[in-house]
């Protein structure tokens, strides 16, 4: 019978103090009744092995105790799908930019390539791993708080069917987006022509900044690109559906824009800074420092550009996919025609 006492003690370890005595008394009584029944059935006292078998049938102490405890969860079944979605999105927003910057740094920054491969991988993975842990911890904590306090307010039940998002059409271009693009591009073009045409960017008595000759190429290229994009947005406004041709044009203009921007960062854009009462060597030093910082941003701009181009490419693929009738669609067509 010592085995039964030990079993009850192990079950009791997991039970809440307030109910422990009561539950154990009842459990003890049930086990003893079962033992008595078995003894009268066998016509002898139970051996240790028999007792062991009886207790094994009842399950491990923690499992037995667990059945008496209220169901507890940090994030319950209602919030769990939202929690998973947010976690996936947070992970994606952390991983994709990190990967893009890491690739660009390795391609364009010689000091990165100079590191031993092992150190490089360990160092970058450590940073990335820490970011993932922080994201996971903060998202989980936020959802645990919502589960504990906000879910009881019934905020998920306050919804209106009319406010559900409209049916998604992957090929449709929102007219509001096209209008916003046209307005913004026209405003930027006006600003560009008025204030950015001259390489003498600032010409004040107390400050003069002159840009490198490469600015001229950049200025006209960007102006041309903005006009093309504006015309393109106007076409989208009246024909608000993506076609493969238009998606390719968007890929081209986006790629050109980001490529030009990246090139500009590498051209030592600031040619001269003039400040009264400051020695030319010092202003030259400041100009060089600005150019150096701009060149440092090159990998990040390339990373951003690659991301945009990939999204544009995905759009083209998606148009292709939706243009191909699926087997189900064909079957439906055959069914209708038949």
């Amino acid at each position: 019978m010592e085995l039964i006492e030990r079993y009850l003690q192990a079950v009791g370890f997991w039970l809440p103090k307030t109910q422990k005595r009561d539950i154990l008394a009842e459990l003890s009584e049930d086990i003893r009744s079962q033992v008595e029944d078995k003894e009268s059935e066998l016509g002898r006292k139970l051996t240790e092995a028999d007792l062991e078998e009886v207790l094994k049938q009842r399950g491990s102490p923690i499992m037995v105790a667990n059945r008496y405890l209220p169901q507890q969860s940090l994030i319950g079944p209602v919030l769990y799908p939202i929690y998973l979605l947010v976690l996936k999105m947070a992970w994606l927003f952390c991983f994709v930019p990190w990967l893009a910057v890491w690739i660009c740094l390795n391609i364009f920054v010689p000091s990165y390539r100079g590191n031993a491969a092992g150190n490089l991988i360990v160092g970058t993975l450590h940073g990335f791993w820490m970011a993932l842990v922080y994201i996971f911890a903060s998202v989980t904590f936020a959802f645990a708080v919502v589960e504990k306090y906000a879910l009881k307010s019934g905020f998920l039940e306050k919804w209106n069917p009319r406010k559900l998002p409209p049916l998604r059409d992957a090929n449709r271009i929102k007219r509001t987006n096209s209008i916003a693009e046209v307005v913004a591009l026209l405003a930027v073009c006006a600003f560009w022509l008025t204030f950015m045409s001259s390489p003498v960017m600032v010409n004040q008595p107390d400050l003069k900044i002159i840009l490198a000759p490469s600015w001229r190429i950049y200025f006209w290229s960007i102006l041309a690109l903005m006009l093309v994009t504006c015309a393109f947005s106007m076409v989208n406004l009246f024909r608000p559906y993506w076609t493969r041709l238009r998606a390719t044009v968007r890929l081209f203009t986006d790629g050109m824009g980001w490529g030009l921007f990246a090139w500009l960062c590498k051209t030592n854009l600031i040619a001269e800074i003039t400040l009264p009462n400051v020695a030319p060597e010092k202003t030259m030093h400041a100009a060089n420092a600005i150019n150096w910082w701009m060149s440092l941003s090159f990998p990040f701009i390339i990373a951003g550009g690659v991301l945009v181009v990939l999204l544009d490419m995905y759009r083209i693929v998606r148009i292709k996919d939706t243009a191909t009738p699926s087997a189900g669609g064909l079957a439906a067509l055959v069914g209708i025609c038949g």
Binding site: Q19, I23, E26, E29, D30, Q34, R58, M63, R67, Y68
Partner: peptide, 25 residues
Amino acid sequence: GYTLRKAMEDAGLPIDEGTLYPLLR
């Protein structure tokens, strides 16, 4: 508890003690 378990078993609806006692509570 124990006789209830036996009665359930005799009626063709066996129930293990891990389910019965928490349910009774």
